[in-house]
Write a protein that binds this DNA or RNA. Structure first.
Length: 483
RNA sequence: GGCGCCAUGGUGUAAUUGGUUAACACGCCGCCCUCUCAAGGCGGAGAGUUCGGGUUCGAUCCCCGAUGGCGCUACCA
């Protein structure tokens, strides 16, 4: 970076008309990564100029989602609803310089003309009829109390282009661009005005946003020019699609990132997954999948962003999640798991050391954090369900259940209770009763954990402790087995 | 409809910016391990790079066209 190069300033500018969805989260992440990589500034701006659809709850949700993902911002959150003066001043400037004009057409008139144009096979663009109104006429009509919106006067000739950091040069014929509304008749700015006014005012150097804004960009470029402002670097990020390759929406299941939190996804795993959706590192790191946040930060660059839309695949996310859980230390896992216990109403009153070693035992086969409160509930609570399928598979035989009860008394009378001794006792007992050890082992697993799936039985016994093992095996005969 | 963008196995991405048996990961299948399930180890199927032209000694890569997908087309953002 040269001497006088300014530090990058980027922003994430969600609209609180919906949750923080996966696509928005990825955009936020890329902005954050870019800012952190370059030592720049990451700004959060809430675009709430659509009063009808914006809500305070949505803002909360977005903020929560950001913090869940660990995306901290340096400035803001700024609310556009509180910066209306800036937009009006900007609009005033555009009007004064002849780049904008008042439009007295009503919404109804416009709709009607649009319908007519479409019916006649013409393009439904605004016909610019107010553009030729003289300044005096406009002033008179305003003075007479007529409502008016402010429109940008798009040049009728020529082309407008910009060089996108991801897509390269994008060019539009000005004739294709409509004289878009800057200020609604109620004085509230539209998106087109407020983005530019803010992006200029906040001295943003790079605009990293979804590719759905690609077509809007020339309208913004025109405003930058009109305002005599320097153009930022635009970097449009391809969109994230659902498995059916249509735009991600509610019907694809989890749409809010917070829904993934509820599903027991580890934020770090989610971030890792998200960062590799539409971006890939350069150099020797191409074939890696697991990156720490620090690594992604140091590797991130706009040039690694791909151009094509990506499908959000749940399987890969599940793999990441499992991978992170498995590789976390029990100490790192514990606070995350505790949240799940709280949700499930479990308060394991056991020494921290025991909890940690049990987490170590279980983490290899957890897929979600919720597993620790649901599938693995028996390890942390004495109130647990017996999985009917598991019972049907391994405890159907009443003989087996009777044997487990008998085995319980062997354990009760045992002088020592170690992994080795527990195994020795069981195997000796099996031989004595002329049954396969596996029969007892699998049955005991279900009785002890309620599940057909668990770590090695004797390790599980140690995790549960002598007393619980005896108690649960003794109760084996009472377990209800579906037919 | 108009305009814009994109196009590598089912999915996410690679391929020294024209020279590879088109690579890696997820997923899938099989085997090993084994008290179950994960994990792990080993092996396998799956794309000739959407299609058609061109340029070139040679195209995943460059050009043109078609097709498909996505986006924009509001006094939404």
């Amino acid at each position: 970076m040269s001497e006088n190069a300014v530090k990058p300033r980027v922003r994430f500018a969600p609209s609180p008309t919906g949750y923080l969805h996966v696509g928005g989260a990825r955009t936020a992440l890329f902005n954050w990564l870019f800012a952190r990589h370059t030592g720049g500034t990451f700004i959060l701006r809430i675009e709430d100029t659509d009063f009808e659809r914006s809500s305070e709850e949505m803002v909360e949700g977005i903020l929560d989602g950001m913090s869940w993902l660990g995306l901290n911002w340096d400035e803001g959150p700024f609310y556009q609803s509180k910066r209306l003066d800036l937009y009006r001043a900007t609009a005033e400037k555009l009007l004064a310089s002849g780049h904008a004009y008042r439009c007295f057409c009503t919404k109804e008139e416009l709709e009607q003309r649009r319908a007519e144009a479409t019916a006649a096979g013409r393009q439904p663009m605004y016909d610019r009829r107010c553009r030729t109104l003289s300044e005096e006429t406009a002033k008179q009509r305003v003075a007479a109390g007529e409502m008016s919106a402010l429109r940008f006067a798009v040049p009728e000739q020529g082309t407008t282009f910009f060089d996108d950091a991801v897509f390269g040069r994008i060019e539009f014929a000005n004739a294709e661009l409509e004289d878009f509304v800057l200020l609604r008749s109620d004085g509230i700015p539209t998106y087109h005005l407020s983005v530019v006014a803010d992006d200029v005012d906040m001295r943003l150097t790079h605009i990293i946003r979804g590719a759905d804004h690609l077509s809007n960009t020339p309208k913004q470029v025109l405003q930058y020019r009109a305002l005599g402002a320097e153009l930022p670097v635009f970097a449009h990020v391809p969109l994230i699609l659902g498995p059916d390759k249509t735009r991600l929406s509610k019907r694809h299941g989890a749409t809010s990132v917070l829904a993934y939190k509820d599903l027991g996804i580890v934020p770090e795993a989610f971030r890792n997954f998200l960062s590799l959706l539409g971006w890939s590192p350069e150099g020797d790191n191409k074939n890696r999948e697991i990156f720490s946040s620090q690594e992604v930060t140091s590797l991130f660059s706009l040039s690694g962003i791909s151009k094509s839309n990506a499908v959000f695949g749940n399987e890969k996310l599940a793999w990441y999640n499992q991978e992170y859980i498995r590789n976390y230390s029990a100490e790192m896992l514990l606070p995350l798991v505790e949240q799940e216990w709280v949700k499930a109403g479990i308060w394991p009153e056991r020494p921290r050391e025991e909890l940690l070693s049990t987490l170590d035992l279980l983490k290899a086969r957890a897929r979600n954090l919720t597993d620790f409160a649901i599938a693995f509930r028996a390890y942390f609570s004495d109130e647990y369900e017996i999985d009917p399928t598991a019972a049907a598979k391994f405890l159907k035989d009443t003989q087996v259940r009777a044997l487990l009860v008998e085995l319980a008394s062997r354990y009760m009378n045992a002088t020592e209770f170690t992994e080795q001794s527990a195994e020795t006792i069981l195997r000796a007992f099996a031989e004595e009763k002329q049954v396969k050890p596996g029969l007892l082992i699998n049955g005991a697993r279900v009785a002890l954990t309620g599940q057909a799936v668990a770590p090695s039985l004797f390790t599980v016994m140690m995790a549960l402790g002598h007393q619980r093992v005896v108690k649960r095996l003794t109760a084996a005969e009472q377990i209800a087995v579906p037919a």
